[in-house]
Design a protein around this nucleic acid. Structure first.
Lengths: 252, 252
DNA sequence: CGCCCCTGTCCGATAATACCGGAAAGGTTT
DNA sequence: AAACCTTTCCGGTATTATCGGACAGGGGCG
């Protein structure tokens, strides 16, 4: 049944905020339909959120306010791995020319913490803060490969294995076999599993106990991500970057 | 009268989140003291927020989660001025070597939307999303100078004129005189009004009706921000940048 | 070691208050 | 100008947020 929480009102407010994010703003009745509540109720929530400055009202439309920027920054800057990995990810993007990313796991989902665009990078739909099921990216698979099976199971229990594209892994056993390979190989790849035409290579950032803290990746169009570059050059680069980050993490 | 809102529970939840941001995480009882509510109540809110994935629990401490990153990004990216001004602000930082900033007004406060660090930039406490009273920065004063007096009055009514440093403007009439000068001069400056040892120059980005949409600035240590550089070179550069942004804004 | 005190968590009763229906006011379209 | 859609306002009712109190887990100190 649909999660019962102690403070329902807060949950509704947050649902409303989330809808405003997805739709890039909306009016009272539109939101009311989306959350399936009377307009008067939604109106109450909107007023509170606006008075508290978490929403901005433009005419009759409400939008999320920049207040969240501060919260997001705080959430990110707390992460030591973010501060330390950032220059490395920048360098990775610079050297490969492609997109380079940093992902962590949170609440069983993969969260893009940082994205660097290399000189040749193509337009991409990822953005900082974006949340995706772990098994749908090379980043996420790398993280799972270096976590205890029981934990991985709980991630899957929580969020299922949705079929994002036709290539998505939707079978548990198949996933765990893949993870075994990743662990053996030391890095993971993704061949059009999330975005058509895109390939991705990812390496884990682990702690002393070989547990994944995060993962770094390089992703680009299939045309450029093949041959030796895909099987050797770039893997070497991301593995080296990941290693540098690990070392810097321990000395700080 | 401490603002009465329709949905008090939501307000409390948000207060808790804000406290977690300020303190970079905290435990139940610490928060309870801060919001002056029983621990049991706070506990209820924390559980809801964590279940909804807006907080992360690490041991017994709660922290804001990266979920806010997405919301913050959305809030910022919606702003056309952000997308368009960003490269200009980067260039400004590059050319002057100092910090360059972009600010907008929201709910009567100044919000730093973007910050670029030039090659010589010194460490600074500003960060994206930071909110400050408008009259405490050159950025804010520029924005106010190009808004109708009635509106400016309402900003002041709402947030007062706190004495951040000994140099803060705390008198209304004095402020409006300053704003007159800014309007005449076309740009504003700030001489250690917010941060000791720092000077700042700011130019407005206005719309067709000469109303401020945002402001750009360059700020650096007093030692470098003086003489012709302070009174001519940099003012020229920020005014030119602001102008480029205005033009790009209208053609898009 | 054992006590104490400060944590976080759980529970249930009660009073507060979030919620909702309904009605009014403002806008738009036909 | 009327029908329709908004958003806003209001007040009664029943839901539910709140809070005291009780329980449990540590950590520190004597």
């Amino acid at each position: 049944m649909s999660t019962t929480v102690p403070v329902k009102a807060a949950k509704i407010s947050l649902e409303i905020v989330e809808i405003l994010r997805e739709r890039n703003g909306a009016g009272v009745s539109e939101i009311a339909r989306a959350v399936d509540k009377p307009t008067s109720t939604v109106h109450d929530h909107l007023q509170t959120l606006e008075q508290e400055e978490y929403l901005v009202k433009e005419g009759t439309e409400y939008h999320v306010s920049t207040r969240f920027l501060q919260l997001g920054n705080q959430a990110r800057s707390r992460k030591k791995v973010y501060e330390i990995a950032r220059p490395e990810v920048d360098e990775l993007a610079e050297k490969t020319g492609e997109h380079a990313n940093l992902m962590i796991e949170e609440h069983g989902l993969g969260v893009f913490l940082y994205k660097a665009r290399g000189p040749d990078a193509v337009q991409l739909d990822t953005h900082a803060g974006m949340r995706v099921p772990l098994q749908t990216t090379a980043l996420g698979k790398t993280i799972m490969a270096f976590r205890p099976r029981s934990e991985v199971e709980s991630y899957l229990d929580r969020h299922g294995m949705p079929e994002i594209t036709e290539r998505s892994i939707t079978d548990r056993e198949e996933l765990f076999e893949t993870l075994d390979q990743v662990r053996e190989r030391g890095y993971a790849y993704d061949d059009e599993e999330r975005v058509k035409g895109m390939r991705c290579l990812a390496a884990p950032i682990t702690d002393q106990d070989d547990r994944a803290i995060a993962a770094v990746s390089v992703s680009g169009p299939k045309s450029r991500m093949q041959g030796d570059r895909f099987s050797e050059e770039i893997p070497e680069q991301i593995l080296r970057s990941a290693n540098v980050i690990e070392v810097n993490l321990t000395y700080s």
